[in-house]
């Protein structure tokens, strides 16, 4: 009741989400899994090292492993958290009442998105202490950590926006989830496979001295490849040199996905309530 600055729908979503013990169990499990993997990695490395030391380059590998694993978890969890936010209200029959309030469609959609992503961000930021292990051994700069966390947030926004759209236009939560997971996996695994397939042709073009843009374009749209390129820029530099394209792949990445996010949210906002305008006069 005290929160006057926060939108009521957002307030409600956050309040209800954190009232459930499931949320805390979820965070604890997530941290437990990631912690076990990190400690397991250190233990395994130490067991193979005859001097029993953990070197900075190994610390860097561990950081990459944790970061890529965390990205995979973000890609996996985001559809589950966002693809049911509207359809589940519809199934529980709470949506019609919410839609007759004075809340605008924009406020409802954005509040739902922000509350879902806030929870995910909390999970991701809760892993920050794990990253401190990496700093202990060196090999990674703080800017790498900031870049990886920023990319997590952006990936959540991309997949979350589509999840909200699917949840708005598809009536059944289960179907909305399946659709969002399919799109999320295509954006990550699917685009990576296409990039890989196109790369096999690239050497022919390369030998002929012709520019071949497609692997570069697809790689620029692939979240895991772009994420990886933050730490290993050589991958994207290779694609870029084949393409003969001067643009930074980040421009393509951010432009495309920013449009994607805006497009998904605009459609979701428009489709949330019926268009009361009469389409045809008979």
């Amino acid at each position: 009741m005290k929160s006057t600055l926060i939108n009521p729908v957002l307030n409600k979503e956050i309040r209800l989400r954190f009232r459930s013990s499931k949320s805390y169990i979820g965070i604890a499990s997530y941290l437990g899994i990631l912690g076990l993997i990190s400690l397991g990695f250190i233990g395994l490395t130490l067991s193979y090292d005859y001097m029993g030391t953990f070197r900075p380059e190994e610390s860097r590998s561990m950081f990459l492993l944790i970061s890529m694993l965390q990205l995979a978890l973000v890609i996996f969890i985001t559809p589950g958290l966002t693809a049911g936010v509207i359809s589940s209200e519809r199934e529980r029959q709470t949506l019609p009442i919410l839609l007759t309030t004075a809340q605008s469609s924009t406020a409802i959609i954005l509040s739902k998105l922000i509350s879902s992503l806030s929870f995910l961000l909390l999970i991701v930021f809760a892993t920050a202490p794990l990253y401190m292990i990496v700093f202990l051994y060196g090999g990674i700069s703080p800017s790498n950590v900031v870049a990886s966390f920023s990319l997590y947030a952006f990936a959540m926004l991309v997949i979350g926006s589509f999840g909200i759209l699917a949840s708005t236009i598809i009536r059944k939560t289960i179907l909305a989830m399946v659709t969002t997971y399919s799109v999320a996996f295509f954006m990550t695994g699917g685009l990576a496979i296409i990039t890989l397939m196109l790369t096999t042709f690239s050497y022919q073009f390369y030998n002929q001295g012709t520019d071949y843009i497609w692997p570069f374009l697809f790689a620029s749209l692939n979240i895991p490849i772009m994420f990886f390129s933050v730490f290993e820029p050589s991958v994207m530099m290779e694609f870029q040199s084949m393409s003969g394209f001067g643009f930074s792949p980040w421009i393509i990445f951010f432009s495309f996905y920013s449009l994607f996010i805006v497009g998904c949210l605009i459609i979701a906002i428009r489709k949330l309530r019926p268009n009361m305008k009469i389409k045809s006069k008979s």
Partner: peptide
Amino acid sequence: ATLMAPTN
């Protein structure tokens, strides 16, 4: 209740 648009 503005939850449905009329056809006419």
